[in-house]
Design a protein around this nucleic acid. Structure first.
Length: 300
DNA sequence: AACTGGACCAACCGCCTCAGT
DNA sequence: TACTGAGGCGGTTGGTCCAGT
């Protein structure tokens, strides 16, 4: 099948939105972002994990396992010498040093930056401080209603992909949006009677669903009415990424193929139109039975 | 005035990705 | 192909502030 950037096949597999690759290989749609990954990268990524995959559906689960084993075998050293680094809140002097250094030398090589700048900080800490607080292009102040709505729409499409959401809000950081979501927007949605995890009316979304960016809740499958106390999920529960919690076999059995809950009415113009790529969804030679054939969709 | 609990958010932690060798 | 390591990401923590009692 074609796998260039213009022609990708979107389909549902085991309840999640997937992009079909060669053969019967798939990747979650959430991993596909035209700004960060092209199809060639996608393919090489998948080939790396394919290996001795016993069955067509086994490769995806192997991905995490393989990466974990790679990292463990590497015996990775810590990113910095923790015994000699400051932690906690940054002082004005540290901020000044960091800003002065980056103004003089630019960003890059965060690992060596602390030493070069005379800071007793981990490189990661410097990077975070710069990106989330010191960067000159940051927009300080309250979020506007338009930004609220854009975040809500993007979250419905992308899930907790805060960096991707932040990329659509100039001057906002992923950390800022994540915090804002957990403290304001969640409550805002709940007050509207909308589940902040599934973006569905609370009455329809009391059953646990996969944390995928696009919901595939079956139309035919009526939500069980047991214990419908619409309890407000805690931030921790809401942000849980444990796939096992959601992917019980019983839950899968209840689902039937249906169109994804794509919010195709999303009409807020993206700030960087040139970065968007239209992905035409084409039919495969032998489409899987659940293949979702769409005319065209925008992957933000 | 002292205490308590919730809201907020900066910062950290651990894992993942991917380019380079 | 395997290994390495820097950079990046999402989840979580913990300090601070403030309103309510």
């Amino acid at each position: 099948m074609a796998t260039n950037d213009e022609t990708l096949c979107l389909l549902e597999r085991e309840g999640d939105a997937m992009v079909a690759l060669e053969g019967d290989a798939y990747l979650p749609l959430g991993l596909l972002h035209p700004l960060l990954i092209n199809s060639a990268t996608l393919l090489s990524l998948y080939k790396r994990i394919e290996g001795d995959r016993p069955q067509s559906s086994g490769g995806l689960d192997r991905r995490r396992v393989i990466n974990q084993s790679i990292n463990q075998s590497m015996g990775r050293s810590p990113c910095c010498e923790k015994a000699h680094t400051n932690k906690g809140a940054w002082t004005k002097e540290e901020d000044d040093r960091l800003v002065a250094y980056i103004r003089a030398h630019g960003e890059g090589c965060w690992r060596s930056l602390p030493k070069a700048a005379g800071l007793l900080r981990c490189g990661k800490s410097c990077r975070l401080r710069w990106i989330n607080y010191l960067r000159p292009d940051l927009k300080r102040g309250n979020f506007t209603d338009d930004e609220d709505e854009l975040i809500i729409h993007l979250h419905a499409l992308l899930g907790n992909k805060w960096s991707l959401i932040a990329a659509r809000l100039p001057g906002r950081t992923d950390n800022e949006i994540k915090n804002y979501w957990n403290t304001h927007i969640r409550r805002k949605l709940l007050s509207r009677g909308v589940d902040p995890v599934t973006h569905r009316p609370i009455a329809d979304s009391t059953e646990k669903k996969p944390p995928s960016a696009i919901g595939f809740m079956s139309n035919q499958t009526e939500v069980k009415k047991e214990d419908k106390t619409t309890s407000i999920p805690t931030p921790t529960a809401a942000t849980s990424s444990s796939s096992e919690e959601y992917e019980s076999p019983a839950w899968r059995r209840q689902r039937k193929p249906k169109l994804p809950d794509l919010n195709l009415e999303l009409c807020i113009a993206p700030p960087f139109p040139s970065q968007l790529e239209a992905l035409t969804i084409i039919e495969m030679d032998k489409p899987p039975p659940e293949a979702l054939i769409l005319e065209e969709c925008w992957i933000l």
